[in-house]
Amino acid sequence: MAGREVTLLTEGSIELVGVIPRSSNQTFLVQVSLGEDVGFAVYKPESGERPLSDFAPGLYKRERAAYLLSEWLGWGFIPHTVIREDAPLGVGSLQWFIECDFQHHYFTLFEDAPETHPELSRMALFDFVANNTDRKSGHVLRGDDGRIWGIDHGLCFSAVFKLRTVIWDFAGEPIPEELLADIAPLAEAVPAELAELLDDDEVTALQRRVQRMMLAGSLPVDRTGMRYPWPLV
């Protein structure tokens, strides 16, 4: 299945289906097809990005970078994400669409599905490493396949610490040794394919965040009470 998804995303023809509502930047549902094989993806073109004072244009690169980081760590919770130069509205990210019940999100999963807590806690660690400034509750999905997925990572990897997330329920808890082992190599070097999508200051800042986590050994605590995105969902 994974090979099929990657093939469709990288080689398939792209047809706009509709606009995904309530997105701060233009975001589209698209159909990708290759012969008789058809799937759906989320397309975020650079041309539809709203100018920001604290992030340079090219947020689509950060979507790809977050996917590469998740894959490199072996955590695999971000849907397959590629960059397409030949998309209908110009260059942008193309991410496999996750079939799910959108009534469920981080808050409902934390309350009603305690078996997901290890994965949600791991996502909190990822968001610190990636410096995610926009982990809303609705950016956490439970797919029809039962897996926990994270989406919307265009506002990650700033060199300035800007963490904003709804996942604070695990704050202060020890990080499992196996997860510390997963992130440890990043303290010394960031994979080239990921580093190429960031600037030098952002790469250095990522390494320093990992170094801090390795020393702390526990998930960060928000002592300000202000490190939340808005809206929360």
Rank of each mutant, 00 (worst) to 15 (best):
V82K: 03
S121D: 02
E36K: 10
G143W: 09
L29F: 01
A205K: 12
P174T: 08
I78R: 05
R223Q: 11
I20G: 08
A184L: 09
D86V: 07
R135E: 01
I183M: 04
L109W: 05
T10I: 02
H80K: 09
A124E: 07
F40Q: 14
N131M: 03
Y67S: 10
D222V: 14
M1Q: 15
L94T: 09
L163N: 04
L9T: 06
A65D: 05
D145F: 13
G39D: 14
A159Q: 09
S93Y: 00
F28A: 10
I14K: 03
V6Y: 03
P220N: 11
A195K: 06
I78Y: 02
W149R: 14
E5W: 14
A181M: 09
G12F: 05
D169H: 15
N131G: 05
Q103A: 13
S158G: 10
I175E: 04
R62N: 12
P220E: 09
L109Q: 08
D145C: 06
A189N: 13
I78H: 06
R212I: 05
E5Y: 13
F28K: 02
A87S: 04
P57D: 07
T204E: 15
I151N: 06
A184C: 04
E46W: 10
A56K: 13
S33Q: 14
K61F: 15
G12W: 06
L232D: 13
E63P: 10
E49W: 04
P118H: 10
D199Y: 07
F161V: 07
F157S: 00
V30Y: 06
N132A: 05
V17H: 07
E115A: 11
D182K: 15
L69C: 00
Y67C: 08
L232N: 10
L73S: 03
V166A: 04
V6Q: 09
V203Y: 03
A56G: 04
K61Y: 15
V82S: 04
E119N: 06
L194F: 07
I183T: 07
F40D: 12
S93T: 01
W149M: 04
L141V: 12
P118V: 02
C156K: 08
F102Q: 11
W230C: 01
G90I: 01
Q31N: 07
L155S: 04
I167Y: 01
P176H: 12
S23Y: 00
V233W: 09
E36Q: 11
P174E: 11
Y106I: 06
F128K: 00
A192G: 10
V30H: 06
E196P: 02
R4E: 12
L219W: 12
L59I: 12
V166Y: 05
V32T: 13
F110P: 07
V166K: 07
R135C: 00
D200M: 02
R209W: 02
L94E: 09
P220Q: 10
I20M: 13
E71G: 00
I148W: 11
V38W: 01
T7K: 14
F102G: 03
V17A: 08
A181S: 14
E178F: 14
E36S: 13
W230Y: 15
E119S: 12
E193I: 08
D169G: 15
R209I: 08
T27M: 05
G12R: 05
A130T: 04
I78M: 08
Y43H: 10
P174C: 08
V19W: 11
Q95K: 10
P229H: 06
L141D: 04
D199F: 05
G143S: 09
A113W: 12
A41G: 07
F97S: 00
